[in-house]
Nucleic acid binder design. Structure first.
Lengths: 108, 108
DNA sequence: GGGTTATATCGATTTTTGTCGATATGTGAA
DNA sequence: TTCACATATCGACAAAAATCGATATAACCC
């Protein structure tokens, strides 16, 4: 998997309302899947699918204990994602005047 | 559009490799569409579609000048998105011991 | 005006993603 | 060892998103 594919994977995980709702629930601490299921309006298999996507993105960790699976936010990966997003959207020094098409400046 | 829909829209915009490539190109400053088209491996109509998604997310601004459209990163919205992501992934105080299913704690 | 260029929009198609119900897996309890 | 429960996986389908080629729009140049 390329670097950009990995980054896209993280943001894709964040780009779904159900998964955002799950993250908000996890903000108050680790939760087992059954609790999440009570609060999110999708079926059990669908929730399981969303949790897999969140875990595979790295933003969430899963811990099994007996019958239950506990999910929690992974703040380390969250911080990494923040840094990536910040890097992507900073305004670098950009004093150029582009009144003409910038294609004029390209290398062919 | 709900709050979560808006947030999902921003992260969806970031969850595509072509759009990530465009953002990386825009890091070095405003670019017109034709320059982006030279460097990204999609057709012209597809690029236009991606740029619309980026602009509608707020992460990118569009400025028309004659025949050309210039795109640039919007660092204000970028910072907002960072803040949202940080809020979503912080580790709040979480001293609870979840050795039993946390459903035991729920309100029915 | 007529041609050329840059970009946007449209319509069709393909690919990806979300959803569900059914079933499988694995655990603890009776 | 059988049962109930929690979760994961599977297969099918529906919805959303990406892509393309064709065409529309709009600006510039001759």
């Amino acid at each position: 998997m390329t670097e950009n594919q990995n980054i896209a994977k993280i943001f894709k995980a964040l780009g779904d309302e159900t998964r955002l709702a799950v993250l908000k629930l996890l903000q108050s601490g680790e939760k087992c899947a059954c609790v999440l299921l009570d609060r999110v309006f999708v079926g059990q298999s669908t929730l399981s699918h969303h949790m897999k996507i969140l875990v595979e993105s790295g933003l969430v960790t899963a811990r099994k204990n007996g019958k239950w699976t506990y999910y929690a936010i992974n703040p380390i990966e969250g911080e990494k994602a923040c840094q990536i997003l910040r890097d992507l959207t900073v305004k670098l020094d950009d004093g150029v005047d582009y009144n003409a098409c910038c294609r004029d400046d390209r290398e062919d």
